[in-house]
Amino acid sequence: MAMIPTGAITTHAQTLPARTRPDEGGEPPVVVFVHGLLTDSLASYYFTLGPAFAAAGIDVVMYDLRGHGRSERPRGGYHIEAFVDDLVGLLDGLDERRPVHVVGNSFGGSIAAGLAAWHPERVATVAMIEAEPPVALWTRHMADGLSDAKRQLAREEAIGWIAAHHGAHTARLSRGASRILQTTTLAEDIPASRVIDDDLSGLTCPVLAIFGDESGLAAQVPDFEAKLPRCRTVVLPEQGHSVLVERTDETRELLLGWVREHSLAGAER
């Protein structure tokens, strides 16, 4: 377990080196996985995509977001720009100078897009799974969802209802989510985050966006395709928001293909 100082906090990271090296002696590509909000941690990748990517000859970086997993949980400072700064601090701490392929799930995808917009020199490509880029509309979606979650999960009977309808496992995750919401300013900070322009002109690198057709987020597809010059969108049929958990194999193959395609092109990006 590596605890890495990343500016104001200490971040828990796990790395898996590529198991094979490129034949011509160059460096392997590097992928950074960014997990989602509240009920999530790097474990979502550690036991799923991480080992497969390392086996495919890709250096893998996984880490816990501030407030999550084994990373530090400060009381405040949960604007998206703080999460992006943590990620830059992590790459610096790991002495990672290669432009990274950054893969983000849900809120992690918003961080990935933020990194690409505000630190384009650090990013080779962005892959967003069921995510929105951090535009003004996104802050409103987050404001609604987070204030609702903070209020509802504080009620013990709500946790009881979740236990009865979704099982003890989900109830425990909900309790953990509630702890973050009640002990930090996350629910207030994220809606007050820095945003990128609505025209998405800040995103200049290639972008892969994967959605489930039953989640509302797939409605962004026409917008992405109109605004992003180098964009690929994939919509998985009969699938809600939990793409990474429920469609792990398809997601892995899409992402592996994406990274391979964009690392064969070499440094010319």
Binding site: M1, Q14, A43, Y46, F47, D64, G69, R70, R172, G176
Partner: peptide
């Protein structure tokens, strides 16, 4: 929790 399993793995 799953993050504890990561530590156990280490």
């Amino acid at each position: 929790e799953s993050i504890d399993l990561v530590t156990l793995s280490g």
